[in-house]
Design a protein around this nucleic acid. Structure first.
Lengths: 222, 222
DNA sequence: GTCTATATCGCGATAGAC
DNA sequence: GTCTATCGCGATATAGAC
């Protein structure tokens, strides 16, 4: 469980040689993602980063400021990855599949970070500033996906009688849920081969495409 | 928490049944769901339940035990709601839509509870016991949905070339994500009318049905 | 069963030497 | 920039009267 006392002084990281604030940020991101804001102590962060408690305060001023710094750092990374997505110009099937696969890959690559975001979303208590940060990044991702779907509809490649926003939520939601629940899904006997990310991503895109493609635009391939 | 403080393994729940215990459980469920385990103090629970701090310890022994009691209580409730789901026997479209809508309704009705579950899933630190509890409930839900899909495939109502588990994950994931992210989605300009639960549930079922129905079994209606 | 009072510990944050 | 030492506070948990 995520008790505040969980941070029994375990061995610090092999200290990947870098600037101190970077190590502090990395340790904080890891701990916040694993235990949540309220359950992580500055002592635990300091131990994880291999520095003293006071040094953490020297660099970030307060626990809340450290938390916001972690979130902003995470948002910056996520925003950078969006730049590589909009370049495709082929048929809709290829663009959609590429987008879906890339989304899942990005999530898996930095699963910790996405867990931290989800935690912030689930909090909803205060943290309105942090939530607005998440909105900003998430909103950009969402708007681009909706735009891709709208373009497909305008071109006649996609049926016009479905809501692009709902389709986008379905795709994102299925991916986020997959990421969140892999540890549990692995233990469900009925899940079978669905726990493999590649199979899951491909099958998801295929199924959604069948629901979105215009009748005369050719069958979903794969 | 692998603390040396753990000491003795206290015998499982005394299963308290008084009015006070119920109020404590309710207050604890609310607070844990809103803020997470680590950020909730026993004092806050006591205030929420209108009793003294010491009384909380009298009834539940420790904070950890209170948390497990809340989770067990939540699982029991969720399991009971499953009993009403398996009775339908009509065409696949109706059964699937009914299942999907009921799932979303249940989630919305007790969103707090589902948030608590998701938090536990996101922790992944230890808490294996609690996670196994979640697995047990979630696994039953999941198995029934997969069984419904398999039945549809066996009857020829559904295409045979998709993985029922992946379709189930997609449906559950889209619903869970919708529940989690409503507060954020409401602030996205591109989301439009997709934030309405009824419209969302209906459109989601419709889109998934188009991807699953056998070609000759008739078009998805509505 | 419920309370008040208290013990003990770890938290966030600060002061100041080096 | 980094540390040790410490403050003030609130946390979990206990003792014991009613």
């Amino acid at each position: 469980m995520t008790s505040a006392r969980a941070g029994k002084l375990v061995a610090p990281e092999p200290a990947p040689r870098g600037d101190t604030s970077v190590r502090i940020l990395a340790a904080a991101e890891k701990l916040f993602a694993e235990h949540g804001f309220g359950a992580v102590s500055i002592s635990a962060v300091a131990v994880g980063a291999g520095v003293s408690k006071a040094n953490v305060f020297h660099h970030f001023g307060s626990k809340r400021a450290l938390y916001l710094a972690v979130l902003r750092n995470a948002c910056r990374d996520a925003a950078q990855r969006l730049e590589h997505l909009e370049t495709h110009r082929g048929r809709f099937q290829e663009r959609f599949s590429a987008y879906a696969v890339d989304m899942l890959d990005t999530m898996l690559e930095r699963g910790q970070l996405h867990r931290l975001m989800q935690r912030e979303l689930l909090a909803e208590d205060d943290g309105r500033l942090a939530k607005e940060l998440a909105e900003r990044v998430f909103g950009e991702k969402f708007a681009r996906l909706v735009a891709i779907l709208r373009t497909g509809q305008a071109r006649g490649e996609l049926r016009a009688d479905f809501d692009p926003a709902i389709a986008a939520i379905t795709l994102i939601g299925a991916n986020v849920f997959f990421l969140q629940s892999r540890g549990v899904l692995r233990h469900l006997p009925d899940a079978g081969a669905a726990v493999d990310p590649r199979r899951y991503g491909a099958a998801l895109a295929d199924m959604l495409l069948r629901g979105m493609l215009a009748p005369g635009a050719g069958a979903a391939q794969r």
